[in-house]
Simulated scan of single mutants.
Amino acid sequence: MTVGRLDGKVALVTGAASGIGAASARALAEAGAAVLVTDLDGPGADSVAASIVAAGGAAKAHRLDVTDESAWAEVVAAGAAAFGPVTVLHGNAGPTSGALMSRDLDVLGLDLGVWDTVLAVVLRGNVLGCRAVLPGMLAAGGGSIVVTSSIKGRVGTSLRTAYSTAKGGLEQLVRVVATGYGSHGVRCNAIAPGIIGTPGLRETAGAEYVARLEAAHLIPRLGVVEDVAAAVLYLASDESSFVTAQTLVVDGGLSAYVPALSPPVAAPVAPPAVPPVVIEESR
């Protein structure tokens, strides 16, 4: 049951018009938080906020460019006027469009304009988010900041130079914020999703490649956005009150092992027979 876990909390979710952000916004609202649904896609944010309200939750939508400091100030002030200070932040905005990611290649092939855009959204955007919500959290006696990293920020890949580098830097930002403000009741953590089986991925990757991806996971399926939203809800709630400066990996075990050294192990058809224990009576 999630109802009531975040009663009295005010949450702000970036990149919330679709995907992980939308699932996170809905999960936080279901748990009792009033949610500020923000995204560069204003109509998309409106739609998600409306769905939360229709389900009986509290939400307001705002268009937000996370790289714009003045826009952050306006949204946080509007949220405080409507619901109170933000005490939960899920920094989820990320530049993941196909057109952009297709130009985020290896170091030699990388489009430097993509490098600038990705670092601006992921690093500048989350620094500005922390700067915008921390004063309210400190005044309220604490809060929880959760940012969306990626397993690409934790392992080596031959492509996605900008995205991988930005996500690795984001996890260091988590440790810095957690160190600076933990004594004031503010926790800061990251989630690192693996491959999430969105409709777009399934449409563009093809059935054969999707099957290979599924087989590469220790739990043989792709993730769904609700898997990640559940992790956000845990880190936002008081159930994780002793967890800070950490990255919770939500990837079905994809990044935890070396496939070349891990041949499949066949599950036994039946448990091995255990010989009966014979107890002889003493005479």
Rank of each mutant, 00 (worst) to 15 (best):
A33S: 01
Y209R: 08
G56I: 01
A34Q: 10
V176W: 12
A59F: 11
V122H: 15
I145R: 07
L134K: 03
A139Y: 03
G21F: 10
I151P: 11
V250W: 02
A166T: 04
V76G: 11
A78E: 15
A49R: 06
L112N: 11
R26D: 01
A139E: 12
V210M: 00
S18M: 13
G109I: 05
V176D: 10
T247V: 13
R63H: 10
A59R: 12
I196L: 12
D7F: 02
Q246N: 09
Y163L: 13
S70I: 11
L110I: 14
D68I: 14
T165F: 10
L159M: 15
V177T: 11
G113L: 08
G56S: 00
P263R: 04
V121H: 13
L6A: 08
R160L: 15
E281G: 08
T96W: 12
A273Y: 01
A82I: 12
A140G: 11
A230W: 00
P276L: 03
I279H: 03
Q172W: 06
G94I: 09
S255P: 09
E281K: 04
F83S: 02
S262K: 03
G182L: 13
L105A: 07
G223K: 02
G223L: 04
T198K: 01
V155Y: 02
A190N: 04
A16E: 04
R202D: 00
S237M: 01
D7V: 01
A207R: 02
V278D: 04
L233R: 00
G156H: 08
E171Q: 10
V278A: 07
C188E: 14
G56T: 03
T67R: 15
A31R: 07
G180D: 11
N189Y: 09
G253Q: 01
E280P: 12
C130G: 12
A245R: 06
I196N: 11
R5V: 00
G94Q: 05
L222Y: 03
R63S: 14
L6E: 07
V53H: 04
G168H: 09
V66Q: 12
R103A: 07
V86Y: 07
S183I: 07
D251C: 07
G4L: 01
R124Q: 12
V35P: 06
A25C: 04
A81C: 09
I195Q: 10
D41H: 13
N126T: 13
A17W: 06
A71S: 15
T204V: 01
D106P: 05
W115F: 13
G109W: 09
V228T: 09
V88T: 05
V13Y: 03
V224D: 06
A260V: 14
G56K: 00
V127D: 08
L89E: 11
